[in-house]
């Protein structure tokens, strides 16, 4: 990992790219990896394998936790030729997506900031765009109340 940045920053940076990879389609991760250069050689350490995560809520929204129900999750751990390990846990059952996300996670740890941005930036932008589109449609359904004027006043 790049040793010019502190560990909490490094974790936050990695958390960000992992959250982007967790939502990116397999094809989008594959083309992002291709953009970053020749595909690295990797070996599978664990998985890809599908299992469950128990999702929780909180009583009343902010009280003590309760189990809401499970979701499918696919995880994968890979190791690059350089020895760097990459991990992925992604919602759903797409094994290829989980493996590509783990490869990208490993590769991103080896890259400098500029190369990272060119790999993860377009994926993040596409997800921001999707969220913005839904937020814009929601905003158009926001109710604007107007007060009725009393005719006698």
């Amino acid at each position: 990992m790049n040793d010019t940045i502190s560990r909490p920053d490094a974790i936050a940076t990695r958390q960000h790219w992992m959250s982007v990879l967790a939502r990116a389609p397999a094809e989008a991760i594959a083309s992002a990896l291709t953009r970053a250069g020749p595909l690295p050689v990797w070996s599978r350490v664990r998985g890809p394998e599908t299992g469950l995560v128990m999702v929780r809520g909180r009583t009343g929204g902010s009280g003590s936790p309760f189990n809401l129900g499970e979701m499918t999750v696919t995880r994968c751990t890979v190791r690059l030729g350089s020895g760097v390990a990459g991990h992925a846990y992604v919602a759903g059952r797409d094994e290829r997506r989980a493996e590509l996300a783990a490869v990208a996670d490993a590769l991103l740890q080896d890259l400098n900031t500029g190369s990272r941005d060119s790999l993860i930036g377009p994926l993040a932008a596409a997800q921001r765009e999707q969220r913005l589109t839904r937020a814009e449609k929601a905003a158009a359904t926001r109710v604007e109340f107007f007060a009725m004027r009393n005719m006698r006043s």
């Binding site: 299992g51 469950l52 995560v53 128990m54 929780r56 809520g57 969220r131 839904r134 937020a135």
Partner: peptide, 17 residues
């Protein structure tokens, strides 16, 4: 399917509503 983990409680205050 095996259970991998349980999640942190979802934060509905941060929901993209």
């Amino acid at each position: 399917l095996p259970r991998f983990a349980h999640a942190r409680p979802v934060d509905t205050a941060a929901m993209r509503a």
